[in-house]
Amino acid sequence: MVGQLSVHGIKRSRITPQAAEAKKLKEQSKIEAYLALEADVLGRKRSKDHTTDSLGQTTKLLDLNPEFYTIWNFRRNILLTLFPTLISDEVVAHLTSDLRLTTSYLLVHPKVYWIWNHRKWCLESVPDGPGESVKWKEEFWKGELKLVEKMLDADSRNFHAWDYRRYVLASLPVQRPLTDELKYTQSKIESNFSNFSAWHCRTKTLAAIWEKEQTPEAEIRRTKDQEFELVTQALWTDPNDQSGWLYHRWLVGSEPPLEVLNREIKNIKDLYEVEPDSKWCINALAHYTLLLGQDQSTTQVDKAKLRKEAHDLYRRLEDVDPDRKNRYQEMGM
């Protein structure tokens, strides 16, 4: 019998001792069934039982625990044993089935590396030859990018999905323009400035464009100026988020033009006046101040002054971020 308790006016069910015992027994039964299944599959693995029956057992176990990487390895060994006995279309059917399986798992466990890894293995195992395999390859890749975009729509900061997106883009039969990827990363960044993976992908995409097109330095500088405008929006929106600051440092680089460095230092000083406790703001200002002091055109007097400014900023960081006090002491020496 289930009674009713009222806490702050909210009714709450009270489970009887009999019902609690029944629930306990049910959970215990589930645990025992799982352990029995695990023992069976691991026993098959040890005895190298690479049969379709073993394949089915791995599916049952992975349904319960898709993070069990040992079972994914065993599953691949089973499939590799079966494939030589099958025609191409049958191999494709198996791989298609596993791709559907991983899709269902990813919807629930989108950050489990082993699921993404098995999906890649499936794609790389598609045979070349007659039948439906060639057509399947072409059609699948058209939809694969849509799949990962749906995953990123659900969680735009899932770095596993971003890694997989780069893999898909590199594997497309017909390569997409790199400018399309720039537009995609910008849309993700503008919807969430703290999307570290999107910022990181943007660095890789821009670098790839410049290398592929052998972009002149003057054009790179013009593009970077536009990027500074984008990242400045992020820094002012949330100065305590690391993502934008890392991208900003990438844009500045190790040997920036003097006018760029002075401009960005001024902009960050403006932000520092508004956000005096932002550790990333102080950190960037200290780093760029030291960078300015390394410029060949800087006089010895100015270099000493800039080192003093940077030292004071690192002392300020010791107060703002005491957990990293020792690190800042070393950086400010």
Rank of each mutant, 00 (worst) to 15 (best):
Met1Thr: 10
Val2Ile: 01
His8Leu: 02
Lys23His: 10
Lys24Leu: 14
Lys26Pro: 02
Lys30Asp: 03
Ile31Ser: 12
Ala33Cys: 07
Ala36Asn: 14
Ala39Leu: 11
Gly43Trp: 01
Asp49Gly: 05
His50Ile: 04
Ser54Asp: 00
Ser54Tyr: 05
Leu55Lys: 00
Thr58Ser: 13
Leu61Pro: 05
Asn65Lys: 15
Asn65Val: 01
Tyr69Met: 11
Tyr69Ser: 07
Asn73Met: 07
Ile78Lys: 07
Ile78Arg: 09
Leu80Glu: 11
Thr81Asp: 14
Phe83Asn: 04
Phe83Lys: 05
Phe83Met: 12
Pro84Lys: 10
Pro84Tyr: 02
Thr85Gln: 14
Ser88Pro: 00
Asp89Gly: 03
Glu90Asp: 15
His94Gln: 08
His94Thr: 14
Ser97Asp: 11
Leu101Lys: 00
Ser104His: 08
Tyr105Asp: 07
Val108Glu: 14
Val108Lys: 12
His109Asn: 14
Pro110Lys: 04
Val112Leu: 11
Tyr113Gln: 05
Trp116Ala: 07
His118Trp: 03
Cys122Ile: 04
Cys122Thr: 12
Ser125Arg: 02
Pro127Glu: 11
Asp128His: 09
Gly131Phe: 11
Val134Trp: 03
Lys142Asp: 05
Lys146Ser: 14
Lys146Ile: 06
Leu147Val: 12
Leu147Cys: 04
Val148Met: 04
Val148Gln: 04
Glu149Ser: 14
Lys150Arg: 06
Asp153Thr: 13
Asp155Glu: 14
Asp155Tyr: 04
Phe159Gly: 11
Trp162Thr: 07
Asp163Phe: 09
Arg165Ile: 10
Tyr167Glu: 13
Tyr167Ser: 12
Ala170Phe: 00
Ser171Pro: 01
Ser171Tyr: 01
Pro173Phe: 13
Gln175Asp: 10
Pro177His: 02
Thr179Phe: 02
Asn192Asp: 15
Phe193Asn: 01
Asn195Gly: 10
Trp199Val: 12
His200Asp: 12
Lys204Trp: 03
Leu206Pro: 02
Trp210Asn: 08
Trp210Glu: 14
Glu211Cys: 06
Gln214Asp: 11
Ala218Tyr: 01
Ile220His: 10
Arg222Thr: 07
Thr223Glu: 08
Asp225Pro: 08
Glu229Ser: 15
Val231Ser: 08
Val231Leu: 01
Thr232Leu: 10
Gln233Ile: 06
Thr237Trp: 08
Asp241Asn: 14
Ser243Arg: 00
Tyr247Cys: 13
His248Thr: 10
Arg249Val: 09
Trp250Ala: 01
Leu251Glu: 04
Leu251Met: 12
Val252Arg: 09
Pro257Asp: 15
Val260Glu: 06
Leu261Asp: 02
Lys266Cys: 12
Ile268His: 00
Leu271Tyr: 02
Glu273Tyr: 03
Leu285Asn: 04
Ala286Tyr: 10
His287Ala: 13
Leu291Met: 14
Leu292Ser: 08
Gly293Glu: 15
Gln294Leu: 04
Gln294Ser: 03
Gln296Phe: 05
Thr298Gln: 13
Thr299His: 11
Lys308Pro: 01
Ala310Glu: 09
His311Ser: 10
His311Thr: 00
Tyr314Met: 06
Arg315Thr: 07
Arg316His: 15
Leu317Tyr: 09
Glu318Pro: 00
Asp319Met: 12
Asp323His: 01
Arg324Gln: 10
Tyr328Pro: 06
Tyr328Asp: 02
Gln329Arg: 09
Gly332Ala: 08
